[in-house]
């Protein structure tokens, strides 16, 4: 009991003091997950839109694969990326194993199906009358597609937030391919795992609290976006 209380007190001291090690770990988490998310959007949004708006051969199969990918166990992804990047692996020459780059790749694989699938769902669910409205107002095919995508923007952002929630909380993949090297590939989740192992609870609890706060924030944004996607909010996000 004492240890836990002690842990919480030291944890809050670390947070209030903006402990440099703590900040560095948080910053790396943001960079790795943020980069993975941006990459996932760059590829997943166009793919989701394509599957939603065009007749694509094998669409059903592709969607099934993507939906399966949403539930991939992080350790399996970690193993896969490890094998890919290890010295004897096909991409071993890139020497990415145990670097933030490897972590970004692993998290990208985890978040890409989520972003793609939720973008697809959001775009498919746009009322068909929107497409007709764009047409009768003189949109060319590209403008028409962009209008439908823009109409789905809150749903798409919801997908991004859901993806971000998954990767920031994930530990299995990043620890396998990043190696949890202090000051280099150590992120929030891996630090919590390691420091708990060592019985060093201060940093672990501090990061746990921050991770929880982040998770709460993500949820609030998530709900706000869902509300904006429907009617009744008064806020206009594009001008």
């Amino acid at each position: 009991m004492d240890t836990i209380l002690q842990g919480f007190i030291s944890a809050f001291k670390l947070i209030i003091a903006l402990d440099p090690e703590l900040l560095k770990i948080i910053w790396l988490s943001i960079k790795v997950s943020g980069a993975a998310l941006i990459l996932a959007f760059l590829l997943g949004l166009p793919l989701g839109a394509l599957l939603a708006l065009k007749r694509v051969p094998l669409r059903g199969l592709i969607l099934s694969l993507i939906n399966t990918g949403m539930g991939l166990p992080p350790v399996v992804v970690g193993l896969f990326v490890y094998l890919l990047l290890s010295r004897s692996g096909p991409l071993g020459f890139m020497e990415l194993l145990y670097t933030p780059g490897a972590m970004i790749i692993a998290q990208f694989i985890l978040v890409f199906p989520i972003v793609t699938s939720l973008s697809h769902t959001a775009i498919v669910n746009v009322n068909p009358v929107i497409r007709q409205a764009a047409q009768v107002l003189g949109a060319n095919p590209l403008q028409e597609a962009l209008t439908v995508i823009r109409e789905a923007r809150y749903g798409i952002m919801t997908g991004g937030i859901a993806g971000l929630g998954r990767v920031t909380a994930e530990v299995g993949a990043v620890i396998m391919v990043g190696g949890n090297i202090a000051g280099y590939t150590r992120v929030m989740t891996t630090t919590i795992a390691l420091e708990t192992d060592k019985g060093n609870f201060d940093l672990a609890i501090a990061l746990g609290v921050i991770l929880l706060g982040l998770s709460l924030l993500i949820n609030l944004v998530f709900r706000a976006l869902q509300r904006l996607g429907r009617t009744g909010s008064g806020v206009v996000l594009w001008d």
Binding site: N140, T147, W238
Partner: peptide, 23 residues
């Protein structure tokens, strides 16, 4: 064509009316 159920875009009134001119 004014569609029977209009197809209002989820944006401001101004942006809705400006749409055709913008494109």
């Amino acid at each position: 064509l004014l569609l029977p159920n209009v197809g209002v875009f989820n944006t401001s009134v101004f942006n809705n009316v400006a749409y055709g001119l913008k494109i």
